[in-house]
Design a protein around this nucleic acid. Structure first.
Lengths: 116, 116
DNA sequence: ACATTATATTCCAATATCGGAATATGTCAA
DNA sequence: TTGACATATTCCGATATTGGAATATAATGT
């Protein structure tokens, strides 16, 4: 068996750097394909293919406007990734917690000084 | 050119469902390989290989203990993913914002009723 | 009907993947 | 040293990927 298909889920779709770039670009508003092509400077088929993958997993939607196809970000689809990563938050915030405690202790000492 | 290497970055490493499973398991505490093997029921080489990828990108670290190798989660490495996804938060919270407004409006109407 | 514009699709080569089987390496114990 | 245990590595087959080139499709204007 080979690697999990790219179109299988959001995690795979987003693993490709170029696709993340496209999503970032679309986060500022919907865009027709050609705008993405000119802004990013990639060959048009490359852009279309990546948009195809993103559409397949629901990360973008498409609307026809004349002969243009306007793509729009569907950001809710990124929430599962956010939530999954966030579920590990504890493991990177522990250090900050300790820093917090330290700072609180400093403050306490300061107010002790004040009360003198 | 083929797909971006799995060992290239965290996003790719985490795109594989089995590797996410391993990370979730390690989030409860460090474990030697064999514990992971028996808990997940996967062939030992499969587990070792996935651990290898995770170690390569720094998502886990390893410590020798006798003939065992104990793996530990390095959760800070997931923060970039969290932050990236969070940067799109606006696009999925807008609906909720609107829902909030709606609910607040409902409440206001209710208290108007109360005041009658 | 035809040319033009905008985009998608197909075919291809090079490459990287994942899992399985077998085997190698490393560590301890007797 | 020999054996048992824990884990990593190598080799392999089947498959999916990405980008490029060429081409197909679709919509518009003349």
């Amino acid at each position: 068996m080979a690697r999990t298909a790219t179109t299988f889920d959001t995690f795979n779709a987003v693993a490709e750097p170029k696709r993340r770039k496209v999503l970032e670009m679309l986060s500022e508003g919907e865009l027709p394909v050609n705008d993405i092509v000119t802004r990013l400077g990639w060959p048009q088929p490359v852009v279309s293919k990546h948009l195809g993958v993103l559409k397949e997993v629901g990360l973008v939607s498409m609307r026809k406007n004349g002969r243009q196809r306007v793509y729009r970000l569907e950001g809710e689809q990124l929430k599962p990734i956010h939530d999954w990563a966030k579920s590990f938050e504890k493991s990177w915030s522990e250090r900050l917690d300790r820093l917090d405690e330290y700072l609180q202790e400093l403050q306490k000492e300061e107010s002790d000084d004040d009360s003198k």
